[in-house]
Design a protein around this nucleic acid. Structure first.
Length: 502
RNA sequence: GCCCCGGUGGUCUAAUGGUCAGGACACGGCUCUUUCAAGGCCGUAGUACGGGUUCAAUUCCCGUCCGGGGUACCA
């Protein structure tokens, strides 16, 4: 492998479910890796003993897999730089910390959390910036080591070098300059022996040979600290790219609160993975032309870091829905059918068993017909109910307008059914010819017959073209439903029930 | 408070020191006709504000305002 080969990583911490903002970060890393023919590493940053959960870890895997964002090295598949769970890398951090300690780049600090809280309060009361005052900086290292060995709790702090300012080169924002006096001697190892984020992150990114770090803008302020750590560790830093935040419509940072179920909730709502990826890719990035509907491959091909915008983006669900509709239309029914099927089974519209070839074919035909108008899989399922059961609901307005309205609709429907009995072959074209002829013979306007028949067989006033619909529905169902509706009309059954007053 | 990042229609965005500032979602209207929730067409709406630099600024600079992020023994 050439040494110019790109290596990037997605490094979530498994606290709570994976949310959509993290997914966008994962996506940008994945796109960059795939575009460059590089390597994507999945690393789990579980150094927070208190907050990590196994469910959260499952959520990371599940979400990425659902979206088709695969990784080349990770906790489940290993790789040359493992392990890929930070909780299993403790010796590596300890070793790195020991090196810094030895060199005097880090020192032991025995201040308690109460001491620090007091310091902070005092500083705030005095209107000063709260920073660690460095009181343990000058402790004799040998003496400090003795106290630590004697069991006195302590943390390890990084000795901030003397410098005027810290410059962070960023692929998206150019050079970002921080004043060095903003930074105090920050903690790198907690008193429980675990490394703190900034430290573990740098040790791993350096150790795993990352060439680029693409992450959220919220991490930009911690980058200067990381840069001095790379320096102290004598490792070359990666190139940084801080992607803009995702905002709610109220312009708040998108967080777990906004979608407690996590990004997988969009699967449950009936979104296609490709649509979610397509939508997310366009939040903060654009290909530079007017294209908006992409396949995965097209996005990979078009992606580049320098076209990522620095400005935060509002997550607009309506646009995601539209994109989903576009992908629904473009995806063959045969591909959609398994997804639709599991939803129909869940909704009790289909049995859980293996479908026969005929049933499977019917489902594909229904999906091909209905996907043109649906915005989500769930909507498609909902609108397709009448294809699978005779127990479909009648739209009240539709009944009043299209069945009750023209006097004698019952006779018309029966007439239509009669002519359809003879149609062969059962194709949209043949159905239309026969249907229109029957309407003519009965002296009924085509529109009247069509509208009436639509409501009779589907209960709905909207949907695909009637003849295509009937072709899929089948002769048996069609004629039976036309006659059943006529029966019901004659019995006055449509008038019973509620809401017959306008 | 302090530090950092942003600011093109309601939203996502394109472009540019000289353009009728382009596209998409949403919204409104029209249309197709067999319905619309699909398709087509049209429309409403934008360079946050104030200074500078310049023949010319949405674009470059400064300030203001607004929004976001950070400021932990969280990540």
């Amino acid at each position: 492998m050439p040494e110019t080969s790109v290596r990037v990583r997605f490094a979530p911490s498994p606290t709570g479910v994976l949310h959509i903002g993290s997914v966008r970060t994962a996506l940008y890393n994945w796109l960059f890796a795939r575009h460059e023919g590089g390597t994507l590493v999945l690393r789990i940053e579980d150094t927070d003993q208190e907050r990590g959960t196994p469910e959260a870890l499952e959520s990371v895997f599940g979400t990425l897999r659902w979206l088709g964002l695969d990784w080349d090295e990770g906790p489940d598949i290993g790789g040359p730089y493992g392990p890929y769970m930070q909780s299993q890398r403790l010796p590596i951090y300890q070793q790195a910390a020991a090196r810094l300690l030895e060199r005097g780049a880090a020192y032991r600090c025995f201040c308690t959390q109460e001491d620090l809280a007091r310091m902070r309060q005092a500083a705030e009361a005095a209107g000063r910036v709260p920073r660690y005052d460095g009181r343990c900086r000058g402790l004799d290292p040998d003496e400090a080591a003795r106290r630590a060995e004697a069991g006195e709790p302590c943390v390890l702090r990084f000795r901030m070098p003397d410098m005027e300012r810290l410059k962070v080169p960023d692929l998206i924002r150019g050079e970002v300059v921080f004043e060095a006096r903003e930074f105090d001697d920050f903690i790198i190892v907690k008193s429980d022996g675990f490394p703190v984020y900034n430290f573990a992150n740098v040790v791993d990114d350096a150790g795993m040979k990352m060439t680029h770090v693409i992450r959220g803008e919220d991490l930009l302020p911690s980058t200067p600290r990381q840069l001095v750590l790379y320096d102290a560790l004598e490792c070359p830093p990666p190139q940084f790219a801080h992607a803009p935040m995702l905002l709610t419509p109220e312009r708040r940072k998108l967080s777990k609160r906004d979608l407690p179920e996590g990004a997988l909730a969009y699967r449950d709502e009936g979104y296609l993975p490709v649509a979610v990826v397509n939508f997310l890719s366009l939040l903060g990035w654009s290909p530079g032309d007017d294209r908006e509907v992409f396949t995965l491959d097209e996005i990979v091909q078009a992606f580049s870091i320098d076209r990522i915008s620095p400005a935060p983006a509002v997550f607009d669900k309506q646009k995601m829905e539209w994109l989903n509709a576009q992908h629904l239309k473009r995806t063959p029914g045969s591909e959609l059918a398994p997804l639709v099927r599991e939803r129909m089974v869940a909704a009790g519209m289909l049995g859980p068993g293996e479908p026969s070839d005929e049933e499977a074919g019917y489902l594909v035909a229904v999906v091909d017909l209905m996907k043109e108008r649906a915005r989500t899989l769930n909507q498609l399922v909902e609108h397709s109910r009448f294809f699978f059961s005779d127990e479909y609901a009648f739209d009240e307005v539709g009944v009043r307008k299209r069945l009750l309205k023209p006097e004698g609709m019952a006779d018309i429907l029966v007439g239509l059914a009669g002519s359809l009995d003879a149609v062969a072959p059962w194709t949209a074209e043949a159905i239309e010819t026969s249907f229109r002829a029957s309407a003519d013979a009965q002296g009924v306007a085509h529109g009247t017959a069509i509208h009436g028949a639509r409501v009779a067989v589907s209960g709905q006033t909207v949907g695909p073209g009637l003849f295509d619909l009937l072709a899929v529905l089948g002769r048996e169902r069609t004629t039976a439903r036309l006659r059943a509706a006529a029966e019901k009309l004659r019995a006055g059954a449509f008038l019973s029930g509620s809401g017959t007053t306008a």
